[in-house]
Simulated scan of single mutants.
Amino acid sequence: MADADAAAIRATRGDWISEHLETYLTSGGTRGHILDLSEVGGRKLTTHCLIKCVGRKSAKVYVRPLIYGNVGGEIVIVASKGGADTHPAWYLNILESKTIGVQIATEAFEATWREPEGEERHRVWEYMAHLYPPYLSYQRSTSRQIPLVMLAPVRPIDVFSADGLR
């Protein structure tokens, strides 16, 4: 998928994403963790986390809501960007960090990250595509391999708030 196509999709969903983030943040995680994505090809009960990272160029703190899965105690997120030909900014930002912040419902933690490889990557991809089937069409629409990021909790932190975020 061309980046312009992916940008058009994000523009139409932009308000929805902003509203989702605001709901998650203002409720302290009591709302926004599970959403019905059946209207867009997803599952009725789709789990979402928040990730917090620092911009590699701006040094600003960003929080993004993302679908997640749990594989062997590690949280898995997918850098799909809707099948765009370039990686999402949050993914490029975490490549520059040893740890990131993660919030799942009402619990937040600092996490280390890694990318699965080989057979593990294949198994994790299949699992995530089962959780959110549109990932399969996203991968078909781009020549880049969509990255998977596995997050391992390190220590608890405070839940995220909207103060000072972009």
Rank of each mutant, 00 (worst) to 15 (best):
12 T>S: 11
152 A>C: 06
37 L>G: 07
147 P>Y: 00
28 G>F: 07
100 I>K: 03
57 K>R: 15
73 G>L: 01
15 D>L: 02
165 L>V: 12
47 T>G: 12
105 A>E: 09
8 A>Q: 08
25 L>N: 08
41 G>S: 04
91 Y>N: 04
166 R>C: 07
128 M>Q: 08
102 V>F: 08
63 V>Q: 08
57 K>Y: 10
153 P>V: 05
83 G>D: 02
155 R>H: 07
159 V>I: 15
42 G>N: 00
40 V>L: 09
147 P>M: 05
165 L>D: 10
83 G>A: 01
137 S>D: 06
70 N>Y: 03
57 K>H: 11
45 L>D: 11
133 P>Y: 02
111 A>T: 04
48 H>P: 00
4 A>Y: 13
22 E>K: 14
47 T>D: 11
38 S>L: 10
78 V>Q: 01
95 L>W: 10
135 Y>L: 04
34 I>P: 00
32 G>A: 02
47 T>C: 08
46 T>D: 04
159 V>W: 08
35 L>W: 13
5 D>T: 15
76 V>D: 02
92 L>D: 13
161 S>D: 10
132 Y>C: 05
25 L>V: 02
158 D>K: 10
162 A>R: 04
89 A>F: 09
78 V>Y: 07
119 E>M: 04
53 C>R: 09
43 R>C: 11
133 P>T: 10
133 P>C: 04
54 V>L: 08
92 L>V: 10
133 P>E: 07
107 E>V: 14
19 E>M: 07
107 E>N: 12
31 R>T: 11
130 H>Y: 13
129 A>Q: 14
56 R>A: 11
19 E>L: 11
126 E>N: 14
138 Y>G: 01
85 D>C: 12
64 R>T: 12
98 K>D: 15
145 Q>D: 15
104 I>N: 08
135 Y>E: 03
40 V>F: 07
162 A>Q: 02
125 W>R: 09
75 I>Q: 13
142 T>E: 02
119 E>T: 13
157 I>P: 01
144 R>Q: 00
86 T>W: 08
153 P>Y: 02
38 S>C: 01
105 A>H: 12
103 Q>L: 04
144 R>T: 09
147 P>D: 10
132 Y>K: 08
120 E>V: 12
15 D>A: 08
67 I>Y: 03
68 Y>I: 07
96 E>S: 14
6 A>C: 06
44 K>P: 09
61 V>Y: 03
3 D>F: 04
4 A>V: 15
12 T>W: 00
95 L>C: 10
152 A>G: 06
81 K>A: 06
56 R>G: 00
94 I>K: 05
78 V>M: 05
3 D>A: 00
68 Y>S: 05
43 R>S: 15
84 A>R: 09
30 T>Q: 00
99 T>H: 05
137 S>H: 10
77 I>H: 04
64 R>I: 12
166 R>A: 15
160 F>P: 05
6 A>Y: 11
14 G>P: 03
111 A>K: 02
77 I>S: 08
166 R>I: 15
115 E>R: 10
76 V>H: 04
52 K>D: 01
136 L>K: 11
58 S>F: 05
89 A>Y: 07
156 P>H: 15
58 S>P: 01
136 L>N: 01
156 P>M: 11
87 H>Y: 13
84 A>G: 13
